[in-house]
Design a protein around this nucleic acid. Structure first.
Lengths: 205, 205
DNA sequence: ATTAACTCAGACAATGATGTCCGATATAGA
DNA sequence: TCTATATCGGACATCATTGTCTGAGTTAAT
């Protein structure tokens, strides 16, 4: 189902035959699908979906953990790349953020299920660590916005990043659950994220 | 470790001996603790922590699933009660929300780990369904705020609720991870939540 | 066309968890 | 004190899953 090959693969130790390459990709895709429908999918299930025998998976991934890690890594890399493609450094902070978030949100939908899996599987710190490639795309933008006064400065950047991440996930979640139409979700997510990190209105009763 | 008994227990079929009551409570507490440190804690582990033999758990909870459900239910009930205690219906919407969120946030910290577990364990709809007691406390307040113009009206209530939930969780998460001190987390969560659901500033370049 | 890399099919041991059952013992409650 | 109710301690069958291995067939690359 999922087809994506954009990611610049890290050149593994030995050259793999085109054959093997395909298997690995199939397994990763299958794992993503399988885990989406059941976070505790077994290796058998994943193999079945990949159209491959279980042992084959172990040829490429020494252990189940390793496979999960690989899935995670590839997904994060894909999203990070999409973000980079939206050029976070270009233009007004507010507009740049909007651009980047749009790109992120669409991409993220595919990987929605991973959140739950990895939240359960990894420690909070580990999870954080793996998200770095994505946060790295956003952090400079948010900082820049703070300097220019477009984003509020009385809260740490890390907090803003966490909030944005949460809002994007929420939008994806709500839309996935059919509680809000996809188009509306995108708009809601954008304007809410903006409001959340914009300087608060000084006016109060 | 955790001690709470406030919840008004539903009168179970048969009267339980004070003895059994204690066991059940110990098991629930132990489960909460155990699952916090490892979302896949076994029944043995939970029993060990509860100072009880594994078979005893099965006397009260027919299955592992049932136990997890019970833990979830009790936790949600506790939080909902804390929220109710903060009187969502009293005073200005903004101040009421602040009051309720403060109460929620503190209570929630204890149950922080449950989120991951249940996200992985339950379908999105199921998860939602179980959160109802908490959302029920917030919904009227948000609606009221919308009517009075204190909260933005161009987005559905459900979305606001989801966003608030996400922000509270984020604050708990960030603070738990030590990336932001607890006091600061509370303030950040409050002002961000407020910003997120307040009417956006019309002024734009 | 030859070879090295890869996949298949299936069997295998090891592990660890769940849920059940038992007889013996303790204890709360009347 | 008496009895129903619980817990204990441990054994038990069942089950699913992981990870390994092997030998025979395929396929990609040079």
């Amino acid at each position: 189902m999922t087809k994506k090959r954009t990611t610049a693969e890290a050149p593994a130790r030995k050259r793999r035959r085109a054959d093997a390459e395909r298997s690995v990709a199939a397994v990763l895709d299958a794992a993503l699908d399988a885990l989406a429908s059941d976070p505790d999918s077994s290796m058998s299930e994943i193999a079945r979906r990949a159209g491959v025998v279980r042992a084959t998976i172990y040829v490429h991934f020494p252990t189940r953990e390793a496979l999960l890690d690989a899935v995670m890594e590839r997904s994060v890399a894909d999203v990070a790349e999409a973000m980079r493609g939206a050029e976070p450094q270009r233009g007004e902070p507010v507009e740049a953020l909007e651009r980047v978030l749009r790109a992120t949100w669409r991409e993220l939908a595919r990987f929605h299920a991973l959140l739950a899996i990895n939240t359960a599987r990894l420690s909070a710190e580990e999870l954080r660590r793996r998200h770095v490639p994505m946060l790295d795309q956003l952090q400079p933008l948010v900082k820049r916005g703070q300097k220019q006064g477009a984003f509020r400065n009385d809260l740490p950047v890390a907090w803003h990043l966490a909030v944005i991440r949460a809002i994007v996930h929420t939008a994806s979640h709500e839309s996935q659950g059919g509680r809000i139409p996809e188009s509306e979700a995108e708009a809601a997510m954008l304007s809410t994220a903006l409001s959340a990190i914009s300087p608060p209105q000084p006016r109060n009763s």
